[in-house]
């Protein structure tokens, strides 16, 4: 990397909880080291001043209104590199639950008789609207992965997402399988890269990173049978994060 001018980074958020950006604040010392490599020009959560020009746009949140569509397109035009940051931006995340019912019904449920005045469209990940150069998955993003992606950006090389299941990393960490503990876990069908963060800490996998590219539906059925689980249990967990991309999978599973 050429040292003369540091790339300028700006953060943007759409429909989300803004928890992703907090992960930068949680980096501690590493964050200070990062600022040797990049200039942060716009960062609502930990900076006060708003910069104007930027090279790298790190964007969190889903696209859920027409206004969002216009705004993300503008960001895309200006940014040399666009990074989708967190589950909402990469797979529509929890916002995708909205897509489970018709838009009219969803609006009515939330806004009642004011529904007609609300501009709302289907919840979408960023790449449904604009080209995304880098993906940082997870809810919230996993700090070592944030750093790995940033390094890849600075080196000008792609960051390929692993296309294998969380189980691979989970086994390497020698966790007791959640299924052994009678819990359903999304690990077998969820894209790895988080170093089985949740399971390492006694939780189970909710699938916040989205599904691996070729989930084996036959095999998934066998797993359900083996552990005596109901399809609904699995679907409820899948759809927590994966509604926007899970439709095809649901059908196969049913």
């Amino acid at each position: 990397m050429k040292k003369q001018s540091k790339p300028r980074v700006a953060f943007f958020d759409f429909t989300d909880c803004e928890g992703c950006q907090l992960q930068f604040a949680n980096m501690g010392q590493t964050f200070l080291e990062l600022t040797n490599l990049v200039d942060i020009v716009s960062f609502r959560e930990i900076m006060s001043e708003e910069g104007q020009d930027y090279d790298i746009a790190i964007v969190e949140g889903s696209i859920t209104t027409d206004n969002d569509v216009t705004r993300i397109k503008k960001i895309r035009e200006k940014a040399k590199v666009l990074v989708a940051f967190g589950s909402c931006a990469t797979i529509a995340g929890v916002n995708g639950i909205k897509n489970r019912s018709s838009l009219e019904l969803a609006k009515k449920r939330v806004y009642g008789d004011k529904a007609g005045t609300i501009n709302s469209i289907k919840a979408m990940p960023l790449d449904a609207v604009v080209k995304v150069d880098y993906y940082i998955l997870n809810c919230p993003p996993y700090i070592p992965e944030i750093i790995a992606v940033l390094k890849a950006i600075l080196m000008g090389k792609p960051y390929p997402l692993p296309n294998y299941a969380v189980c691979v990393e989970c086994k390497m960490n020698e966790n007791v399988c959640r299924y052994e503990k009678d819990q359903e876990c999304m690990g077998p069908v969820t894209r790895a890269g988080c170093n089985s963060w949740c399971i390492n800490n006694g939780n189970r996998c909710y699938g916040c990173r989205g599904l691996v590219e070729k989930p084996a539906s036959d095999a998934a059925k066998d797993i359900l049978q083996k552990y005596g689980l109901k399809v609904e249990d699995i679907l409820n967990s899948f759809t927590l994060y994966n509604d926007s991309m899970g439709e095809k999978y649901d059908q196969e599973l049913k």
């Binding site: 189980c167 086994k171 989930p215 036959d218 095999a219």
Partner: peptide
């Protein structure tokens, strides 16, 4: 092959 979910558990252990 039809039943395998490709989780990689078998080779890791």
């Amino acid at each position: 092959g039809r039943r395998c979910v490709a989780c990689g558990n078998c080779t890791a252990v």
